[in-house]
Design a protein around this nucleic acid. Structure first.
Lengths: 204, 204
DNA sequence: GACGATACCAAGCAAGCGCTTGGTTTGTAA
DNA sequence: TTACAAACCAAGCGCTTGCTTGGTATCGTC
């Protein structure tokens, strides 16, 4: 199952919005603006202008501004969880599974969904307590995928450090790439970067 | 030269504010609030209340709210650069220098200056173009310390991955600890965490 | 003890914010 | 053609924001 099919299936189940729907277009622009200026500095007027409607009309689609932020986060986690599951499924050894996870997370951070991923990392403080709990719960499912693979590698003896710590370090290291890595500048491809990460872990 | 002496020397040179001065107290509270709620969600009234003055009185000390943010960042970088220089100076081998850098950065992220460090990572988007350039220039000096040690390790053959990439990964991994690591919960000390990082790099 | 600088207060202004409201257009299906 | 809901507009309300202003304590210095 490739990424396109995964996306279609999620859209069919109404778990993420199609990017050509009104809602999808708004969420994409919202992710872009939230990443560029931050959630607080992005006004509902900015959001409305980005999709060509009046600011008040936003509230026909979402009850509050915060609900837009939450929707960006929730749909992003859903999509990424599905993509990661597929990545693991396609790999044979645990080492390959880890490489696939790293490669896929780099892709989601630096590819199409990169803006939404950055929002996920940087803007969680702008969520209300209730929304935060909701997002965190979804996130736990995502993290479980990683920990499963890392624990298996630990049992194999391929990993010496604590899996939990390693995942946390990887989370930070990979998400940080969004601040410096430019996949379109050809001197370092995403596969190349994945290799470097695996090498750093002694799993090259 | 220990950390206390470094701090005294920087205060004497007027490069950072003494924490018992009015300015120092304000910057400390600002860092706390900026980290807790984010820069945009922190109002000048919040800041003023935290140090027990009226909101208008803030502008006797700083011309704008943004200047407060910049001051938090600038003073933090200055302090940390000095601390890192001392850490490198005290170590003999390059491997020990790297460990000292990691240990010192973990300390600055998770210790007293942790709130300011988090602000440095999360709030740079709230800086104006001009302030950002200023902060980045200071940051370059700090990064040069790391790259010097990593390049030396690469030449020794102790490091296989690209030093530049490794530093970026470490930046992300270490700064991310602020979101999950609790040094006061005794199951993992900062030295223990440093060991884990070194082990992850194959330099344990 | 007069003086100037420093630190602060009390009040409020102009602008921008999220969101509401009442009404109009557009799309869809009988 | 009619009926109705979804999508949107135009206007603006109430509130909060960063910051300003004019004036008052407080302090070290000669």
């Amino acid at each position: 199952m490739n990424q396109e099919k995964i996306l279609q299936s999620l859209i069919a189940d109404n778990l993420v919005s199609a990017s050509d729907s009104a809602r999808g277009r708004l969420l994409r622009e919202a992710a872009r603006l939230f990443r560029e200026k931050g959630y607080e500095r992005t006004t509902v007027r900015d959001l409305a202008a980005a999709v060509g409607i009046q600011s008040g009309s936003l509230f026909h689609h979402f009850r509050t501004k915060e609900e837009i932020l939450k929707a960006v986060m929730v749909e992003t986690i859903r999509l990424n969880t599905a993509v990661m599951e597929a990545a693991i499924g396609a790999a044979k050894s645990n080492r390959e599974k880890l490489r696939a996870l790293i490669r896929a997370e780099l892709e989601s951070i630096n590819g199409q969904t990169g803006e939404a991923m950055a929002v996920l990392v940087y803007e969680w403080r702008s969520l209300s307590e209730a929304s935060r709990a909701e997002v965190l719960e979804l996130r736990d499912g995502y993290e479980a995928l990683w920990l499963g693979v890392l624990n298996a590698l630990k049992e194999e003896g391929a990993l010496s450090a604590d899996p939990f710590v390693v995942r946390r370090m990887l989370t930070g290291a990979l998400s940080w790439t969004v601040t410096w890595y430019r996949p379109d500048r050809g001197d370092l491809t995403q596969d190349g970067l994945t290799d470097q990460v695996m090498a750093m872990l002694g799993l090259g």
